[in-house]
Simulated scan of single mutants.
Amino acid sequence: MSEPGAFDPRAMAPLLWRLADRFTRGGEDCPGFVARPDWFDHAGNLVVVDGTVRWNTPGVQGGFCHSVPVGTHPVYVGTYTFGQDDWKPDEIRYFTSVLVIPFAGPARIDAAQWDEGYDDHQELEDYAVLCDDRADGKVEHPGPAGEPSLFEQARDRIRADGPRYRRHNWVDQVVDPATGANAMIFPADAEAVYGIEAEDENGELLCLVFTACSF
Rank of each mutant, 00 (worst) to 15 (best):
Q84N: 07
A128S: 14
P69T: 11
E125W: 10
T57Y: 08
A128L: 11
P31V: 11
E140N: 12
V77C: 14
S67A: 14
P102I: 03
T96V: 07
P69E: 12
D90L: 10
W55D: 00
Q113S: 12
C131G: 09
V98R: 05
A20C: 11
G78E: 01
R54Q: 15
H42M: 09
P142M: 09
N45D: 15
G51E: 12
P37T: 01
T52I: 00
E123W: 10
H73K: 07
R25N: 11
P89L: 06
G44P: 10
V34Q: 06
A35M: 12
D136Y: 15
D29I: 01
D86K: 10
A128W: 13
A128Y: 06
W114D: 00
D133I: 03
G26F: 02
A135G: 15
A43V: 03
F103P: 03
Q113F: 05
H141Y: 11
P142G: 10
E28W: 01
N45Y: 01
G137V: 07
G59F: 06
Y80P: 07
G51R: 04
Y127T: 05
G83K: 02
W17L: 09
H141D: 06
D50W: 09
F103H: 08
L99I: 12
D119M: 13
V139A: 08
V48G: 02
A43R: 04
G71A: 09
T24M: 08
A35K: 12
Q113M: 05
S97V: 03
N56D: 10
E125M: 07
P89H: 03
C65P: 00
D38V: 03
V48M: 01
G105L: 02
W55E: 00
A107C: 00
G26R: 08
G78V: 02
L99S: 10
I92N: 00
D90T: 06
L46I: 11
R36P: 02
A104P: 00
N56E: 11
G51A: 05
P74D: 10
A20F: 03
R18P: 04
P89W: 05
V68R: 05
T24E: 10
Y76I: 00
D21V: 01
D126C: 08
W17T: 01
